Computed example of a mutant assay.
Amino acid sequence: MTAAGCEELDAPLHVAVLVASEVVCAGLDASLTSLPTVGAVTVLPLEGDGLSARIGAADVLIVAAEQWSLLETCTDITGLPSTMVLGDNLYERWNGDLSSLPVDGFLSLQDLSVQALDDALRRVTMGEMPIPSSLAKRLLAGGRGGGTASGQRGIPLTSRENQAFALLADGMSNKQIARRLGISVHGAKRLVGSILLKLGASNRTSAVITGMKSGLL
């Protein structure tokens, strides 16, 4: 278990599941219910009104890669809970563009286990980005492709992400970043998540190291 996995949560989590496969959905429901970190599990319907509200009531959303695009229909994407995408071969599926939709972490379906779920839930609630090592390596390889000398070209961050990254590198928490940038804590969490994803980093420390090597800091 990682260091993050050893942290105690303030309260049991409400986890929403948006997965079409009945087999995968049932397995997730049973595994999540067995975790002391989870207080409630809601299996969401794929069709019908009120999806945004039902998702927004949860602390964490686990969505299958095939259903990820359904989040585009949500009226307020910034108000979504921490979102983890479940699937394999994600880099190839979206040609490396994994930040166009809300995401705070990834789960490998092939390597999924109760322990992996517990660890990922703890980490995502702490502002880290759970990500399979194979996907992290693929993102890094893709981001550094072409042999560009400039880290800014190899790993393009938006101006807002650059601001947040500088504050992150100074050791600020999501709450402190939000206060400094004049945005919500959830907005800050989204920025940090996007930064970690683009850098192929699973936590803040590795993001800073990658940023320094790439010339972003």
Rank of each mutant, 00 (worst) to 15 (best):
A166T: 14
A58R: 10
A58N: 01
S108I: 01
F165N: 05
E72S: 13
R122V: 07
G5E: 05
G200R: 08
G187F: 01
S100Y: 12
C25N: 12
T205F: 09
I155M: 14
G151L: 09
L98T: 01
S113L: 02
L32Y: 02
L51M: 04
S159L: 14
T75W: 11
A57F: 06
I209P: 03
C6T: 12
G215I: 01
M126F: 11
A169W: 09
A141I: 03
A166R: 15
G142L: 05
W94I: 02
P12D: 00
G145L: 08
L90M: 11
L80E: 06
D49R: 15
V17H: 13
C6P: 01
L191E: 00
V19H: 07
V23R: 14
P12S: 01
T83Q: 09
L13N: 05
K213M: 10
L18K: 10
A64Q: 14
V15P: 04
L117H: 11
L32R: 13
A201V: 11
E47M: 12
I209G: 08
V85S: 05
G96C: 11
D104M: 08
W94N: 09
E47K: 12
E22H: 07
V60K: 14
M172H: 10
A164Q: 11
G215N: 10
D111S: 14
L70H: 06
